[in-house]
Structure formats: structure tokens, C-alpha cells
Amino acid sequence: MNNQPFDLIFGTGPLGRSVMVELLGYGRKVRMANTSGKASGLPGDVEVVRCNAYAVEEVEACCRGARVVYVCVQPPYHEWPQKFPSLIRSIAEGVMRTGAKLVLGDNLYMYGQTVGSIHEELPYAATTRKGKVRSEVARYVLGLHQKGNLQTVIGRGSDFFGPYVLGSTLGSRVFPALLQGKACSLIGHIDLPHTFTYIGDFGKSLVLLGETESAYGQAWHVPNAPTMTPRQVAELAYRLAGKQPKIRSMGRVMIAIGGLFIKEARESMEMMYAFEQPYVVDSSKFFRTFGDISSPWETSLQATLDWYASLR
């Protein structure tokens, strides 16, 4: 990229790709970093580099010349407590050495179990291991901003769905079966309201935050389409696919059995509360500042169906 300023994205997964698409729409030069230095299906003018994000010196070298750094990467789900804090500290330290800004893609685990809608003013009251890790990470990066060491902003989304999203409650357990007219598997109490975040809207929101000076130093809940129940979401997806809805749910017992063989399933047990009570995200702070940029359910689900269909 010579000496031209660029924006850097750590991670080439679903969120990183969504950020990339949005940045290209802004006319930005984009560099993406992962552990291999390779990624398929990216535009030819997007540079992909290898970087060990746990090594500060490598992060610094990768970020040198960057304008904004987007953190869209995380350790394997079952390794969060051991690796997440050191990953974020390494990235933040490397970014600080370059003078770039940092945008962190986050979730909602730090709030723990809540009553009523989930908004940014809630305390970090998580009692789960992964919730505590998310609390630690958020406090750390916002603390760096408050000390004047690193300009940081956090965007928080709920459970993902969309192109490239596989390991989600609205991912590979739902859409492949759905497209074949078979029964899909949802988890928890599927007739309670649950907010889901379209990955395209998440990426768009992170870039909007990264481009807005006044947004830094805060956490923002990214916009989502109106909250429905998981059953309603699945039924709409079946209708869009021209299939008859066939939906089954998995509770704690089934998840626990799966956890005997699958680490990710075992780790998800402590987060089951989010699917056993209403889980409604309040994004009104974002709406008031930037407007409602969320995609309609029909649009986001159709894009998701089209992507999964392309894999067949």
C-alpha cells in the first residue's frame, strides 16, 4: 500500500468482512490481518497480511500507517477466559504505538442477566466467566481512552446472523436445513422476544462509529431490526425460502448432552439465560445520533439465505 493511509481490520471472519465492505464503500484503502495471511473471496485491492495479534511488536508493525484499526477477532469460544484479555491488551498496545484509533466489535455479555431492555447505562454485572472477560476487556479499552492513551470506541451487537456466519444460534444449525425443507434447530424458549443483529448492519455501524470523532470514548449498541421471537424469525425465513416451517427447540438438557462432545456447546451453557427470558436490546442512543440504519428483516434474511444457498 506504499505510504497511503489505510484502515486495518483484525479478523477476516463475518464481522471483519462486513466492515471491509463498508470501508470500501467509503473509498478507504483496506488491510486485513489474520494468523495465516490468507483469506478467500476478498476483492483484489484488499491487502491481507499475517499477524500474530498476541505479539505487540507484530501488531505495531501491522498497524504502522493505519488511520483506524477495527478489532473483529476473538479467541476460540472455549478459550476466552485464558486468551481474550491478553489478545486485546496486545492489540491495544500495538495500536497505541502507532497513533491510530481503535474500534472494538463487542457483544452484550458484560451486563449479565437483566430485567427489561438492555441499554448502555446498565452496570457490568455479569457472573459468567465469559461475561466477566467481556467486562474486563471493555473497561480496559475505555480506560485507555479516558487516560488519553488511545482513542477508542465500542460497538455492541447481539447474536449474529448473515453471510459467513456459521457458529451462531441463527447460523449453521438453521439455514442449511431450512433450505432443504427440513426442521431447523433453535435453542431455549423460542417464543420469547430475542434481538438478533444482522452482520451487515454491525459492520456498517462500526465504520460509522469509527468515522465519527464524537462517538469515541463510549460504548454503543448497534441498530437492529424490530425484535421478534426466534420462532417468528425462523418462520419468516422459511416463507422467504418457499418452504413449510419445521422448527424444533433445544433446551438445557440437549445442550448439556451436546457439551459432552463439543467444547463450544459446553461453553454455551452459562449463557443459556439469554434464551430463557426476554432479551431485547435498546439501540435508541445510536438511533438518536445516527438514525435507524438497520436492514428490514426480509432484506437481511434473504441475503443470508442467498449466501447459504451459494454453498450448496
Rank of each mutant, 00 (worst) to 15 (best):
N2R: 13
N3K: 06
P14E: 06
R17I: 08
S18D: 10
V21I: 10
R31L: 12
A33T: 04
A33Y: 01
N34A: 06
S36K: 13
G37Q: 09
G44L: 12
R50H: 09
R50T: 07
A61R: 15
R67V: 09
P76D: 12
W80T: 00
W80E: 01
Q82H: 12
I88C: 04
R89N: 02
A92R: 06
A92C: 15
E93Q: 15
E93P: 05
T114Y: 09
V115W: 08
S117M: 13
T127G: 02
R129P: 00
R129L: 13
L142S: 04
L142K: 13
Q151Y: 09
Q151I: 00
S168L: 06
L178D: 05
Q180A: 13
G181F: 09
C184P: 03
C184H: 13
I187H: 11
I199A: 13
G200W: 12
Q218L: 07
A219Q: 14
H221P: 10
V222Q: 02
V222P: 03
N224M: 04
T229F: 13
V233S: 02
M250E: 14
G258N: 11
L260R: 10
I262N: 15
S268V: 02
Y279T: 05
V281T: 11
S300K: 02
S300L: 07
D306Q: 14
R312A: 14
